[in-house]
Design a protein around this nucleic acid. Structure first.
Length: 342
DNA sequence: CTAGGGTTAG
């Protein structure tokens, strides 16, 4: 009961209340166990509050006499690695864990592999994987391979990334969107846009649904290769409603259009973006008030705003009252225009 | 049985 509540609080980073609840359950005679402590320790580590995490760890071990588990150590090691690579302290914790007779598992090793890869130390990451396999008999999994691929891509070593990708597939591990995302990012940054596009189409053919960030990577790649038209076509083909409200994607396209000298396109995109700000934040009341005001003063909607609102009505995100109001504001010259007649 | 992993784009 308490553990479930603490887990919920930690999920929304409400560490202060989570700790207060841990104290309360202790007072009420319901003793916090290693799961309770690990939940809060991990949450503190994720929020970069490493000192508080260590204090709680010490309290658990020395005051309560609860033995830490592989999860307690892994959380602390991950926190130290992500906090600007505090390697000395991280390896000290790793040693302490081994001295304690606790074996690292694949998640512990992945923390180390990922930390090395993020620093571009692919060789060191491979050493960790070899130790894991040969000395511990643990096989790398999807996350291990994905981190390694990402590390290679960050260094622009694409042929190496592909060979890791191939050996992963050979082992029967299916790549995830994150894996492809790293490769796409690597190709785009190496200005190998053809390879990136081929891979992107392969991902789509496989029926994998790239997330907003992956779409952003490929769109930016196209923009940086002076292919703004292709980027815009792809953006519309993606036809994802979440994507069309993504401010980062808009900025990528807007900046791309500017760089390619297509200032007219950039202006339209900027206008679209300012209009969508309203709708994304569900400030429907503000939009409605604005539309009413426009109606009062006899103002007509411009084409881009109108098409945005029509799309919203079609998507069912605007109610009937709004639709009626909008229809009153459609300028006469557009009433019989074929593009808006449906 | 409960607690831990890769989040990549402007």
């Amino acid at each position: 009961m308490y553990n479930t509540m603490i887990k919920g609080l930690c999920k929304v980073s409400n560490n202060v209340i989570a700790i207060a609840l841990l104290r309360l359950m202790d007072e009420r005679g319901c003793k916090p166990d290693v799961v309770t402590y690990n939940t809060v320790i991990d949450s503190l580590c994720k929020d970069k509050m490493i000192d508080d995490a260590f204090n709680l760890f010490k309290e658990m071990v020395f005051q309560k006499g609860i033995s830490p588990s592989v999860i307690s150590y892994s959380s602390l090691i991950d926190g130290l690695c992500k906090l600007g690579g505090r390697w000395d302290e991280a390896s000290k914790m790793l040693q302490e864990m081994l001295d304690d007779g606790i074996s690292p598992d694949v998640l512990t090793f992945n923390i180390l592999v990922d930390a090395y890869c993020k620093e571009g130390k692919v060789k060191e990451a491979e050493d960790v994987i070899n130790i894991m396999m040969l000395k511990r008999g643990i096989l790398p999994d999807l996350v291990t391979y994905s981190s390694l691929i990402d590390g290679c891509c960050l260094r622009g070593e694409m042929s190496k990334a592909i060979s890791v990708f191939d050996s992963m597939s050979f082992r029967g591990i299916f790549p995830g969107v994150v894996t492809y995302s790293s490769l796409l990012n690597g190709y785009c940054k190496s200005l190998k846009i053809e390879e990136a596009m081929n891979l992107f189409h392969e991902v789509t053919r496989k029926g994998l649904k790239p997330d907003e960030c992956t779409c952003g990577i490929i769109l930016e790649g196209l923009c940086n290769n002076h292919k703004i038209e292709e980027a815009l076509t792809l953006f519309h083909l993606m036809g994802d409603s979440k994507l069309s409200y993504n401010i980062v994607v808009y900025n990528i396209l807007k900046d791309g259009a500017s760089k390619c000298g297509k200032l007219d396109i950039a202006t339209v995109l900027f206008q679209d973006l300012t209009n969508k700000g309203y709708l994304k934040n569900k400030h429907y009341d503000d939009v409605e008030m604005l539309l009413e005001k426009m109606d009062e003063i006899g103002y007509s909607l411009d084409v881009s705003t109108l098409s945005l609102l029509i799309d919203s009505i079609a998507a069912g995100s605007l109610d009937t009252a709004m639709s009626t109001l909008i229809s009153k504001l459609v300028p006469d010259e557009l009433i019989d225009s074929p593009s808006y007649s449906a």
